[in-house]
């Protein structure tokens, strides 16, 4: 664990810099430990794949003081109880109207559409990080056979609910937006709803598994 300043009111805790469920779990564990302890000087945290950014109030602490307090927590980490992450089961319709980049993914991976769907739905993914768009969850890791490069020229408009692949990641567009991920399906689940008091469906550390639904089931999902 390495700690750096990120300006004069935040510190960055870097874990081993690689993408894995175990390292990401360390990030969310540290975040939970901090949230459970008394840290009135902390104003916000940004958990990412293998780092935790911690924002603090300059009037209440300094970089070196907070660094010491965070390092002191690390010692207790071994004793922390086992995690029980939430598992979200998310329906995805892979029908041709929604799987608009399936041909490109087939070309890149040499997998059939059925194999792509099988690989995409047989794994439990972890929310490694929230970002890019409000409510957008970076999910991983996708099996290596499904590694897909982003589109060379990003689409100007990706529809809300679109499910995409990029590298070893997969994700759901929470709203209509420009984007470069390869779109292989669409979910009827609203992963971000601006009108709700808690607009977000996912948080970092949650688990997600997709399951295939027909176009009819997709249409009926919205009560």
């Amino acid at each position: 664990m390495k700690i750096f300043p990120l300006g004069d009111s935040a510190l960055l805790v870097n874990f081993e810099q690689s993408i894995s469920p175990e390292i990401n779990r360390k990030v969310t564990q540290l975040q939970k430990q901090i949230a459970a302890a008394y840290f009135p000087e902390i104003e916000f945290m940004i958990p990412a794949f293998c780092s935790l950014t911690i924002g603090y109030s300059k009037s209440k602490t300094t970089f070196s003081k907070l660094k010491k307090r965070v390092l002191a927590l690390k010692v207790q980490q071994a004793n922390s109880e086992k995690e029980n992450p939430i598992l979200h089961k998310i329906p995805v319709c892979y029908a041709p109207t929604y799987s608009i980049d399936i041909q490109e993914v087939t070309n890149q991976t040499n997998l059939s559409k059925e194999e792509i769907i099988e690989l995409h739905t047989s794994q439990i993914f972890q929310v490694y990080m929230m970002g890019f768009l409000p409510g957008f969850a970076y999910l991983g890791s996708v099996p290596k056979q499904l590694f897909t490069k982003r589109k060379d020229i990003p689409r100007k408009r990706v529809e809300k609910g679109s499910v995409g692949l990029a590298g070893l990641q997969t994700g759901i567009y929470p709203m209509e937006s420009p984007g470069g991920w390869q779109i292989i399906g669409r979910t009827p689940v609203e992963v971000f709803d601006v009108k709700k008091e808690q607009p977000f469906y996912f948080k970092t550390g949650d688990q997600v598994q997709f399951y295939p639904v027909s176009k009819k089931e997709f249409d009926n999902y919205k009560k």
Partner: peptide, 11 residues
């Protein structure tokens, strides 16, 4: 390549 991580105003 870096793995995405926190950024803030001023970065």
């Amino acid at each position: 390549e870096l793995i995405s991580s926190g950024v803030l105003p001023g970065t």
